[in-house]
Design a protein around this nucleic acid. Structure first.
Ligand SMILES: [Zn+2]
Ligand SMILES: [Zn+2]
Ligand SMILES: [Zn+2]
Ligand SMILES: [Zn+2]
Lengths: 171, 171
DNA sequence: GGCCGGGTGTTATCTTATAACATAACGTTC
DNA sequence: GAACGTTATGTTATAAGATAACACCCGGCC
């Protein structure tokens, strides 16, 4: 039963990691996904995607707008929103509803239900891929007679790095 | 193992139901919850709660603002937002992040993870109470080392009433 | 009275998002 | 390579959602 790993046990990256690699991987994957679908990853869309991946903190549309303004001539809000909508339609970014912000998708190409941990201390958001959560959600909604289109789970809290140190030897 | 019902199998109300009863129940419960906590359910807060319960469609802050203006003298946005924030802190309403809107909580007093089905056709939102989803979410987040504070599940789709009729005899 | 704190009123402003229309770039066909 | 339909972007204006900052009121308390 070729069961892929049920979930990623470490959704939050280390504080220090080779983030340039995150970015290049994301851009490479995006190119592949778009090519496979015949979608056009234009210059602006690519730049917006790159800016979304600037960090693991969700980026607001106007943050991206401002950053984009530094790279090229000023662009107006609709341009950014259109690019973000395109990227979301391709499954390349997720929108974090509770923050009105966007993060790059960790698993583009694989359809999945968005599951996010949002740290209210450091602001990072990590995407989980817990098959059990997804299964529970899909089952619950099916039992409610609901035709599911786009489920998302968002949890606000404290990431491992931002939690006060445990008193006892509780790992 | 006094297991409460795992979930409500019919989160969406019938089109026609005695909705006044929904409202009065909600207001009664709110009074009890506030009394128990020593929180003051003032006139404005109560009116805002009543307006949130006007229907099972999530109400935007400015919808409430407008409706409130019809009942009493004009109130400014901060008044409504403060009332909504109070109600949310008391667990009397939930915010639907993906809609920037608010719905009354079906189970005030019982701490729970918000689970919502949002129909993109009729606009209604139904709160689920699926213990298995909640358990899966809590477990997944705990395994990720995440200190959980406020998990929510939101699913966009079509409610049973709004789905195209099934072709075959598939219930 | 004088003080405090919670709740509300008021004004102004900020952030987020989209409507509507104009223009440019691309791909195809002949 | 001109004409055409299609998709993407530019531009202007505005809608929609949310909050900051400060004033005021009112009840309880000393
Ligand atoms: Zn990274
Ligand atoms: Zn953190
Ligand atoms: Zn009702
Ligand atoms: Zn519906």
């Amino acid at each position: 039963m070729a069961r892929t790993r049920a979930h990623n046990p470490r959704p939050f990256k280390r504080e220090k990691h080779d983030h340039r690699r995150c970015v290049t991987t994301a851009l490479d994957r995006a190119a592949k996904v778009c090519a496979a679908k015949g979608a056009r990853l234009t210059a602006i869309r690519r730049q917006v995607l790159e800016l979304v991946w600037q960090s693991h903190r969700p980026a607001g549309a106007y943050d991206i707008l401002a950053a984009l303004g530094r790279k090229r001539d000023y662009v107006a809000p609709p341009t950014v929103y259109r690019a973000l909508e395109f990227l979301r339609a391709q499954g390349l970014v997720h929108r974090i509803e509770s923050l009105n912000a966007f993060v790059g998708c960790e698993r583009p190409g694989e359809p999945h239900c968005g599951q996010f941990l949002i740290c209210r201390a450091c602001g990072r958001a990590a995407e989980m891929a817990d098959g059990r959560i997804e299964a529970a959600v899909r089952r619950g909604l099916a039992e409610a007679g609901f035709a599911l289109e786009r489920p998302t789970v968002e949890a606000l809290g404290l990431c491992p790095d931002c939690q006060p140190p445990a008193e006892a030897g509780n790992a």
